[in-house]
Each structure stands twice: as C-alpha cells, then as structure tokens.
Design a protein around this nucleic acid. Structure first.
Lengths: 179, 179
DNA sequence: GTCTATAATGGGATAGAC
DNA sequence: GTCTATCCCATTATAGAC
C-alpha cells in the first residue's frame, strides 16, 4: 500500500485554509507553500501546476461529501433537520473542504461549480424523501441562504456562535413545511 | 448642473458586466477598458485606481438598492412575496449592480460586505413586518438560497427561465410560514 | 523529494503627448 | 478628456543543484 507523502496533505490543508481565510485571490502558490512549511519548488513537485492542486482539493471534497450524504441519509432526526443543522460552520473536514471549494465556484471555476451542482442534487433528493418533493427546494434554499449569510458576514470564525439562533428559526420553519 | 461624461458610465457598466460574466479575477483594468471601448489611460483618468472604480460601483448599488427597498415597502402583494419574486435574475440595473457587488463580497472585499449587510438588514426588517419576526429569517434565507444557486449554476443568463418553478415553490412555502 | 534561483507573463499604475 | 508608452511588482512556472 503506497504511503502518500505528508507534505502533500500539508499543502492541501494549507490551500484550503487560505482559500477560506483570505480568499481565492490571496491563496497564491507562494502563500500556500509558506503556510504548509515547504518551498514553492517543493509544492510544485507534488502538484505540477495550480490546476492540479485545485483538482486534488476537489477530489477530497467529493470523498468527504460522499460520507456526509451517507450520514444524512441515515440521520435519525431526518434528512432535512440534519441538513439545516449542518449548514452552519462546525469546522469539520467536510465544512472546510466545502467552503474552500465554494471560493473557487464564486470566481467561476467551472469544475468546482460542476461538483457543487452534483452535491446539491443529492442533498435535494434526500430532503425530498424526508419532507416531500413539494417543499424540498424551500428547505434546501433555506440552508443555502444560512450558509451564504454566514460567509458574507466575514468568514466562518465569527459566524458559528452568532447564528445558532438562526438554526432554531429554520428548524421551526422546516416543521411547518413538512408533510 | 454638471453632466457626467458618457465614458464614465460606460466604464462602470463594463466593470459590472465583467464581474458578472467572468468573475472578479478576470475583471482587470485592461479588460474593463477594452470592453468599455476606452484605453486604459482613459479609464484611469475617470477612476484614478481600481478602488475608486469599485467605490463608484458600490455607490450606484446603494442608490439602486434604496429604490428597491422603497418599492418593496409599498408592494401591494406584501414585502415577502415581492422579495422572493425579485430574488430571481431579471436583468434590471439593480440585479446587475447587486450581482457584480457580490463578486467582490465573495473575495472578502470589506466595503462590499458592509453594504450587503446593510441591505440585507433592511430587507429583513420589511419581511418581518410582513410575515412576523419569527419566520422572517426563514423567508430571507430562502430568497438568498435561490440567488446563490442561480449563481452557482453558471451565471444569470441560464438561470432565469429554469428557476421560475422554484419561485412558485418558495411562494407557497412563504404562505405556510406567514402569520 | 526538496531546495534556490530565475524566467515569463500579466496586472496596476504613472508620465506625458495630443 | 483620451491616448500611447513604460515602469514596477506579484504570480505562475521552469531549470537545475543538493
């Protein structure tokens, strides 16, 4: 079994952290290398160009999203409730991966947008099975809106605590829409 | 009464169009000048640097948002219904201005985020007066989610027609939450 | 496998002609 | 008021040493 070099994962982690923390524009190869504790040359040994770095990050997102979908499908409180609760930043690897990828989707990165659409569709299907197809999109969009506002507010760090009340409001709304 | 040069408005329009169409990263001064049909030097006569260009765009957003808030407050169908309906891209100057500014908010532009927060708060207040404070955020976030998904889908052009059905779903949801 | 140069490109901004 | 020419710097990427 081939063992991936640790530097590789450190670089991916650093890239995600920078995308989330300082935005796409400032997540340069220089900054990523510095944060990961490797030289730029070392970074480019593992990822021959920036697109390769992005592709690897999106692969990781797909893998984590698959795990999340499975958890959502098996959630005892129901898929819709699970979805709303997890729309808020919790710092999980999935959260980080998703948020980092969203920075790329925002600047019109085609592949990032494609993956997002696929994940959204899977979420929608599970929510529809839970609350009915009529109101599924309403629930999906509520969660997305919560996510969007947390991001606009100024990054994930500040938002988690302040928006817990919003989650309760949305959960109450979900109950009214259920059926 | 001083008459603003036409080139100035052409530059602002071009900047908005590029932000929406190709993203923040590709909306360079070169690209803006070319699209507006002026030279880079000509552009920099009207806007001494890129921040000045952004500031002028945000001023226009504020002005248009003020008009929209007034329409929403006076809407006969109610603020919540008006809000959901207008969450979908219609190509109005307000839509363009809002979307362009959101490209800046996405890359963590501080002033753009500040303006957004202010507009969101005004929307929330009007929705709360319409459907009650308990469910106001649910309605606000539904509209925001609709907006976010239309953007992820690949720009405004493709989304307007395909998401009209989503608007009907959300309007039905608003009726269930009202009261 | 990781480093230090360094090349090549492109974006923001200035100077000065017209 | 608009243009061309040019400078400076950041960023991506390459070459080759260790």
């Amino acid at each position: 079994m081939p063992r991936k070099p640790v530097a590789r994962d450190a670089v991916l982690d650093a890239f995600e952290e920078l995308l989330i923390g300082v935005g796409e524009r400032a997540a340069t190869l220089d900054a990523v290398a510095k944060r990961a504790g490797v030289s730029k040359g070392g970074l480019l040994y593992h990822f021959p160009n920036k697109e390769a770095l992005i592709a690897a990050m999106l692969e990781r997102l797909d893998s984590l999203a698959g795990e999340d979908i499975a958890l959502m499908a098996a959630a005892p409180e129901g898929a819709a409730t699970y979805f709303i609760r997890t729309s808020l930043w919790s710092g999980s690897p999935m959260d980080r991966s998703f948020l980092a990828a969203s920075r790329l989707a925002e600047v019109a990165h085609v592949e990032a947008r494609r993956r997002f659409a696929a994940i959204q569709q899977q979420w929608l299907d599970l929510i529809a099975a839970d609350v009915g197809s009529g109101m599924a999109k309403a629930v999906l969009y509520m969660g997305d809106g919560l996510y969007l506002n947390a991001m606009w507010e100024g990054g994930p760090a500040s938002s988690a605590d302040g928006r817990q009340g919003d989650v309760e409001v949305l959960l109450a709304a979900v109950e009214r829409l259920r059926g």
